[in-house]
Structures are given as structure tokens and as C-alpha cells.
């Protein structure tokens, strides 16, 4: 699936998006997989209270399923307007 990063999460991981092969069933499992891959992911996901998630462009909680999803995005709380 395509995994996208925005704002300071994008900066900490160092790229805006990537293709990820995963067997994770939920967002939280995907985060755990990413965190052990490399230090930059662990840094980006160190404080999950300030991370928001969208699966296929719908806001969801960390325990949401990603099975069958084509796009998962991680970003901080929104600050538009």
C-alpha cells in the first residue's frame, strides 16, 4: 500500500510517500512495523498522541483496520484556516 507523510512527520521520516509491503492488520500494527525499521520512523512516531491517521483519506483511530486499504496517511493535527 501507499503510505503518505505530511508536515513534521514527513520531515522526520525524510520522504513524502512510499510503497510499503505489510502484513499489519491495523494502523497501530503498521506503526510498530515502521518503528523497528529505522530510527527515523521511531523518532517520527515517538509521540502517537500527536499523530493523526487517515485510511483511504478518511480519518480513523490507531486501532482501525488497514486490510484492503490502498492508502494510509500520517500527519499532525490539522492547522489550516
Amino acid at each position: 500500500m501507499q503510505v503518505l507523510y505530511f508536515a513534521w512527520i514527513r520531515e522526520r521520516i525524510g520522504l513524502p510517500k512510499e510503497q510499503v509491503e505489510t502484513t499489519a492488520g491495523t494502523v497501530a500494527e503498521l506503526v510498530e512495523e515502521l518503528k523497528v525499521r529505522e530510527e527515523r520512523y521511531a523518532v517520527a512516531f515517538a509521540d502517537l498522541a500527536s499523530v493523526r491517521v487517515a485510511v483511504d483519506q478518511q480519518m480513523v483511530d490507531l486501532d482501525a483496520s488497514i486490510i484492503g486499504a490502498s492508502e494510509v496517511a500520517f500527519f499532525p493535527p490539522m492547522t489550516g484556516g
Binding site: F6, W8, A54, F75, P76, P77, G81
Partner: peptide
């Protein structure tokens, strides 16, 4: 619509000043 936009539309602001860039906190 403005209240919703502030917290539900995926925009992020980054301020640049003399000390460099800083992402605006929600």
C-alpha cells in the same frame, strides 16, 4: 464551516522566522 475547516481539513502551517521553520501547533 470555518470551525470545521480548522480541525478537519488536512492543512498544516509552517512559520519561518529568524530562528528557522516551526510547524504551528494545533
Amino acid at each position: 464551516m470555518m470551525d470545521y475547516l480548522k480541525t478537519r481539513a488536512p492543512f498544516w502551517k509552517k512559520e519561518t522566522g529568524p530562528a528557522g521553520g516551526k510547524w504551528v501547533d494545533a
